[in-house]
Structure formats: structure tokens, C-alpha cells
Amino acid sequence: MNEATVKEKPVAAGAGRSLLSGRGGTALGVGMATVFLSAVVLIPLAAVVWKGASQGPGGFWDAITAPDAWAALKLTVGASLVVALVNLVMGTLIAWVLVRDSFPGKGVLDLLIDLPFALPTIVAGLVLLTLYGTDSPVGVTLVYTRAAVVVALLFVTLPFVVRTVQPVLLELDREMEQAAASLGAGPSTIFRRIILPNLIPAMLTGTALAFARAVAEFGSVVLISGNVPFKTQVAAVHVFGRIESDDTAAAAAISTALLVLSLLILLAIDLLGRWGARRG
């Protein structure tokens, strides 16, 4: 996935030398893009916030602290944090093995890493349910537990850290490690003092992306979690239930909380990106 943001690059003055040429072309293009974005994204999201706030701050607060909603939000954030941490470690490890190790089948493994991105979430959920359901062939039954929620989220967030760390590791100057070795650093010192500091911005960016995805996740959790309120019901599933029972005001309030959380994470990712760029 391409999560990169547009880099600032100088463009010659009066630069409209493409399909949308000239100043008028720019204005027309911006206008059309704005209308499209507004109709599809901005107005609908604004409507969610509007609806969520329609009962005043008290009403908003009551909606998200209703016991079942609050439990769902807590579970979502908690499970997402666990998932983010596991991804931080395992994602980095997988990227490491894919870049620095070589063994037969590595190419296929590298390809498989993207499968969770391509696989529909409901299929991901079904697939996990087949392995970790009540008649689990490996004898591990997770269905209807919080562990199941975590496993489902781990599945769908697998590529994030791997795919942000992998390119950085590939481009990491091997001569830095050789220079450190010639200066007397052993393998563990080289990893700690040279490799890790250079990977950390990418590791954190990938982890934040994984966290954002986990907080928003719906499809993969639906089947395997059982959606038991107060136990395995995550926020997105809770919102879905509220919509189904026509309680759109409460659904909008909880959605607003999720939106704010997502925007904060996007902001964090942007800052991390700048931090990484400043040092690179």
C-alpha cells in the first residue's frame, strides 16, 4: 500500500503544464476535486460529527460512556494497543528475515505478506474462524474470546510494519555496519546503536498505521468475536448494532470518538514521517 504523502517539490512558476493547464485549469480542477471530495467524504463525515454533537456535549458524553459503548471502546483501544505492540516486534522481525536471511520459499513468503491487504475482511474472519473455531483442527479454540479479537486484528494489520520497515532496511547502508565493526562494535552493539536507531521512525510509523487500522476494523472481527457486549464487542461492531436498531445519534457519537482517535493517529504518523525525513 502506498501511504506516502506528497513531498513538497518546487514547481516552476505558472506551472499548469498538464492536462489541467493554466490558472483557469487549476481552478477548475480544484473545484471539481473539492465537489467530489465533499460529496463523498467531507459532508458525510461532517454529518456524523454534527449528528454526534446534536445532543450537546452532555448527550455526546452520555452516549460514549453508556456502559456497553464504553466497554466496546475500551476493548477496541486495548486490543489495538496489544496488536500494535505485537506488530512492532513481529513486523520488524519479519522484515529483518525477509531482507537479511535467505531460504527457499522466501519470495513466496514475501508475496504472502500482502495477502491480508488483498483478502476481504469478512473472508479473513471466516478463515481464522475455520482454524480457531469450536472444532479447531490445531486444538486452539479462540472463538468468542478477546484473544480471537486480537488474532483477527493481527491478521489484518500484518503488512503495515513489515512493509514500512522492509524498504528502509533494504536501503540501509551496509557500510555503516562495516564502519561500526571496524571501530570495534560487536554484532549486538551494531544492531542496538546503528541499525535500530535508523529503523525506529519506520517501525513507529508502521505501528501507528497498524493501530489506526485495528481501531477501525469491523469485517474480520464480526464472525470470530461473537460480538458479546461487554466482552468481545469492539467499537465498530457496536456502532453497527446501533445503526441496525436505528439509534443513529448514539452511533454518530461513538463514531465521532473513533474519528477523533483516527485523526490523532494520522497526525502522529505525519509527525513521525517528518521526524524520519529530518534525520534521513
Binding site: 547502508d173 555503516m176 562495516q178 564502519a179 571496524s182 570495534g184 560487536g186 536507531p197
Partner: peptide, 21 residues
Amino acid sequence: LPPQRRGVGFVFQHYAAFKHL
């Protein structure tokens, strides 16, 4: 001997600067 224990200083063509330091 591994490079760590040879007592040599090595300077690389492309500097191999530790970018994060």
C-alpha cells in the same frame, strides 16, 4: 580476526556516516 579486533581504521568511499548521530 574479525574487523572489530584488527586495530584498523577504515574510511569508505561513500563515507558510511552514521546518519542518526
